[in-house]
């Protein structure tokens, strides 16, 4: 199993550094959630990812104001595409994780792993 986590380096990446990362997890560090493109998300699936997470700041405390909101919109858009091509859109998720929330990061990743295990069972 492979999970790709796109992380905003201001928030989720900091949280990831405090967390114990399961072996399935690959991190992609971004300067801001706003940098993520639909193309990246789809390419991650194409490259064999079972799940993709986009973890950014809370929408109201993005350093670049709309970066997190844009990330969320792109995830929503990519979910539509996934639906059309027959991939469970739940395999792609967006969550806000602030820099001091190591436990939340860990839980989101664990939930994703759990969900994927259930889906493949």
């Amino acid at each position: 199993m492979r999970i790709v986590v796109f992380c905003c380096e201001n928030s989720a990446y900091q949280a990831a550094r405090q967390s114990r990362l399961p072996a399935e997890v690959d991190l992609i560090r971004l300067p801001c959630g706003g940098r993520v493109e639909v193309l990246h998300l789809l390419r991650a699936f194409e490259g064999g990812a079972d799940g993709v997470l986009v973890l950014t700041c809370q929408e109201d405390n993005c350093q670049s104001l709309h970066g997190s909101a844009r990330a969320r919109h792109r995830v929503e858009y990519a979910k539509e595409i996934l639906k059309e091509i027959g991939i469970d859109p739940e395999r792609l998720q967006w969550h806000p994780v602030t820099s001091n929330m190591g436990p939340r990061f860990q839980k989101i990743v664990a939930d994703m792993v759990e969900g994927l295990k259930l889906a493949s069972a």
């Binding site: 801001c32 706003g34 940098r35 993520v36 493109e37 350093q63 670049s64 970066g67 844009r70």
Partner: peptide
């Protein structure tokens, strides 16, 4: 401030980060 939003949105992929 190097957020990269423009690079993500540029329809012509003209912006390099």
């Amino acid at each position: 401030q190097a957020c990269g939003m423009c690079a993500a949105d540029c329809p012509a992929q003209a912006i390099v980060y």
